[in-house]
Amino acid sequence: MIDIINDKDKLIQSLRELEFNFEKGKISKDSYSSQKKILTDKIDNIEIVNRVKKLQGKGEVERTLDDWTKKKKEDQVVQEENEELMRKYMTSTKTRDLRTTKEKKRGITRNRTILATLLAVIFFSGIAFGFLLINSSSQASAVPMTLNQTAFSTSNHTTNVTNNTNSLNTNTTQTSQSQTTKTNTISGTGSGTNNTTG
């Protein structure tokens, strides 16, 4: 684009010199006409290109080299500022990502803690429930039980677990008495012979 501008200025300068030389009579009319036509066509082409650029929004093609240099420096400054902003922005994004990740991890850790606590509570509740059942079972076993069944056909004397068979002679005597009483009862009623205790 810079070459186009310089070319246009050069072409205008060349056209002026051509007109000056033709007025002085240094060049012929045919040569003047042909060269003028060439220069004019080139200038027209440059102007057409400039118009097209303007229509495309790139109309600042007619700036000088200094303008372009300044603009380039400005663009560099802006670009550096943008890059710096981008760096800052990217850094903040990373930080934000890290924060988000940490928050997610904290959330997961919190959920895990809640779940572990809940399971622990359930576990100990289950154990307590089991112990409760065991205790209730042992409470049921605390109900006094009494056995008065017998495998014997005759009604002997009654003894308890706590005071049995240390005095065999006494027990034998009592048995005899019991059997005697039993015989009398049976003969009195005339019914079946044996009754079981209890």
Binding site: P144, L147, T150, S155, H157, N160, V161, N164, T197
Partner: peptide, 9 residues
């Protein structure tokens, strides 16, 4: 169990 059966051990 408390036993009241005859000759129970």
């Amino acid at each position: 169990a408390n036993v009241s059966s005859p000759n129970a051990v």
